[in-house]
Simulated scan of single mutants.
Amino acid sequence: MRGDGDGWAVGPDGGRRWGVHGAAGLLLRAPRSDGTPAVLLQLRAAWSHQGGTWALPGGARDSHESTVDAAVREAQEEAGIDSTSVAVRAERVTSGRPGSWSYTTVVADAPAPLDTTMNGESTELRWVGEDEVESLPLHAGFAEAWSALRTRPVRMLLDTANVLGAGGPSGWWRDRPGATGALLTGIAAALPRTVELPDRTFGWVSRVEAVLEGRARSAIVDNDRTRVHTADGSGDDELARLAAAVAPDTSAVPATATALDPAVTVVVTADRGLRARLPHGTMTLSPSAVLGWL
Rank of each mutant, 00 (worst) to 15 (best):
R2G: 12
D4Q: 03
D6C: 12
A24D: 02
G25T: 07
L28A: 05
P31Y: 02
P31Q: 04
D34Q: 07
P37E: 01
V39Q: 04
V39M: 04
L40G: 01
L41Y: 08
L41V: 05
H49Y: 14
G52N: 12
W54Q: 02
G58S: 06
G58E: 02
A60F: 02
V68R: 02
A75W: 06
A79F: 04
D82V: 01
T84A: 06
T84G: 01
V86K: 00
V86Y: 02
E91Q: 13
V93H: 00
G96H: 01
W101T: 05
T104N: 04
V107K: 07
D109F: 01
P111S: 06
A112P: 02
P113Y: 10
L114D: 11
T116M: 08
S122T: 08
E124S: 12
G129A: 12
P137C: 06
A140E: 15
G141D: 07
E144G: 10
E144W: 07
A145V: 01
R152F: 14
P153N: 10
V154H: 02
N162R: 13
V163C: 07
L164P: 03
A166G: 05
W173M: 14
G181F: 00
G181V: 05
G181L: 07
A182T: 09
L183S: 05
I187Y: 05
I187T: 04
A190L: 01
L191H: 03
T194F: 00
P198H: 07
F202S: 07
W204D: 02
A210Q: 05
V211W: 02
L212E: 07
G214N: 03
R217M: 14
R217L: 08
A219Q: 04
I220K: 13
V221P: 08
D222V: 14
N223Q: 14
R225T: 05
T226R: 06
R227Q: 11
V228G: 05
H229Q: 13
D237I: 08
E238G: 06
A240H: 10
A243G: 11
A243I: 12
V246Y: 00
V246I: 11
P248H: 11
S251D: 14
S251M: 10
A255R: 15
T256P: 00
A259R: 15
L260W: 10
A263Y: 15
A263S: 15
T265V: 15
R275V: 13
R275P: 08
A276R: 11
L278R: 00
L278C: 02
P279W: 10
M283E: 15
S286D: 15
P287V: 10
G292H: 08
